[in-house]
C-alpha cells in the first residue's frame, strides 16, 4: 500500500487511539452487564442478597408460571406494539417523505416537536385524555353517546399499547422516513413506465427499498417496548403490567436483586436469540450496514 504522506515516517500502528472508545465500551457497556450477570447468580433470602454462585433465581423463573407467563406476555405486547407502530409510522413516513418545499419543514417540525418533551410527561398526558373524567369520556357524554364514563379506557393492556405506540412511534417513523427519502423518484416512474400499477410499485419497489428502514425501526421499537417500565406503570394498572415492572419491583420493593438480575438476563438472552434467528431470515445485516452488502 502506498504511504499517504511520502516523507512522513510511520510510527507503527497507533493502537492507543482506540483507547477512549474501548474504555467507554468497557466501563459503560460491558461492566454493568457483567455485573448484572454476576448478581443473577447470587443468593437471596429475607435478609437480602448475598454474593454466591447458585441457580436459585433461574430455577424459580422456570418453575413458577408467574414469571414465564409474564415474559411471554411482555414479548407479545412488545411485538404487537411494534406492529401497531409500523402501521402508524409507514403512512406517516411516506407522507413526510413525499412533501416538497417549505411545507416539508413545517410537517417535520410538527411531527418531531412533541418528542422534545420527556416521554414520562408524554405518557402522563394520556391520563387526562383516557381517564374517568378525561377528554374522551367528557366528549362521549356531551355528545350523548354514553350516559356514564367508559371505564375500560385506562388501566389495562389496551391503554399500554396506546401509550407505547405514541411514545416510541418516532423511532419507527424516522428510519422509514430516511429510507424512503433515499429512494430515487425516477425508480417510481420507471416502475409505472414498465406497467406497474401504484400498489405494484409499492409492493415491488418502494417496500423492498425501504425494508432496511422498516427493520431498524422494528428492532428499535421492539427493544424499547420489551423493556418498557414507565408506560405500563402509569397506564397499565394491574392487568397491563410488563416484565420491566416486575424487575423493578424485585430491586426496589422485594429487595431481591438476584431475581431482578436473573429476569433481566433472561430477557436479554431471549431478545438476543430472537434477533439472531429473525436476522437470518430477514437480512438484518443490511440494517447495521446501511443496506450495502
Amino acid at each position: 500500500m502506498p504511504r499517504p504522506f511520502p516523507g512522513v515516517r510511520p510510527i507503527g500502528k497507533p493502537f492507543w487511539l482506540m483507547l477512549p472508545g474501548v474504555a467507554w465500551l468497557l466501563v459503560f457497556g460491558l461492566a454493568p452487564v457483567a455485573f448484572m450477570v454476576a448478581v443473577s447468580f447470587w443468593r437471596s433470602s429475607i435478609f437480602g442478597t448475598t454474593p454466591d454462585f447458585v441457580f436459585d433465581s433461574y430455577a424459580r423463573i422456570i418453575e413458577e408460571p408467574l414469571y414465564l407467563d409474564l415474559i411471554v406476555k411482555t414479548l407479545r405486547m412488545a411485538a404487537l406494539t411494534t406492529l401497531l407502530s409500523l402501521l402508524v409510522s409507514y403512512p406517516l413516513a411516506w407522507f413526510l417523505a413525499t412533501r416538497r418545499g417549505a411545507w416539508k419543514a413545517v410537517w417535520l417540525v410538527a411531527v418531531f416537536v412533541p418528542f422534545w418533551i420527556s416521554y414520562v410527561v408524554r405518557t402522563f398526558v394520556w391520563l387526562p385524555i383516557l381517564g374517568r373524567n378525561g377528554l374522551i369520556n367528557q366528549s362521549l357524554m356531551a355528545l350523548g353517546i354514553t350516559d356514564a364514563p367508559v371505564e375500560w379506557l385506562l388501566y389495562n393492556e389496551g391503554a399500554v399499547y396506546v401509550g407505547l405506540v405514541y411514545v416510541y412511534t418516532l423511532f419507527m417513523t424516522l428510519p422509514i422516513y430516511l429510507a424512503l427519502g433515499r429512494i430515487d423518484p425516477k425508480l417510481l416512474e420507471a416502475a409505472a413506465d414498465l406497467g406497474a400499477r401504484p400498489w405494484q410499485t409499492f409492493r415491488h419497489v418502494v417496500l423492498p427499498l425501504s425494508w432496511p428502514g422498516v427493520l431498524s425501526g422494528c428492532i428499535m421499537v421492539f427493544l424499547l417496548a420489551v423493556s418498557a417500565y414507565v408506560t405500563p406503570r402509569l397506564l397499565g394498572g394491574t392487568s397491563g403490567i410488563m416484565l420491566g415492572n416486575m424487575i423493578a419491583s424485585q430491586f426496589l420493593s422485594n429487595n431481591n436483586w438476584a431475581m431482578g438480575a436473573a429476569l433481566s438476563v433472561t430477557l436479554v438472552g431471549i431478545v438476543g436469540a430472537l434477533l439472531l434467528v429473525t436476522g437470518r431470515w430477514i437480512g438484518i445485516a443490511e440494517v447495521f450496514t446501511g443496506g450495502k452488502k
Binding site: D184, K186, L187, E189, A190, A191, A192, D193, L194, G195, A196, R197, V205, P208, L209
Partner: peptide, 20 residues
C-alpha cells in the same frame, strides 16, 4: 391513460435501474 397503461416504454436519463 396513466404511464402504466400506455404502450410506451422509456429509457431514463440516469437509467433508473432497480438497485434491489
Amino acid at each position: 391513460l396513466a404511464p402504466y397503461e400506455r404502450p410506451t416504454n422509456m429509457i431514463f436519463q440516469h437509467l433508473a435501474l432497480f438497485p434491489h
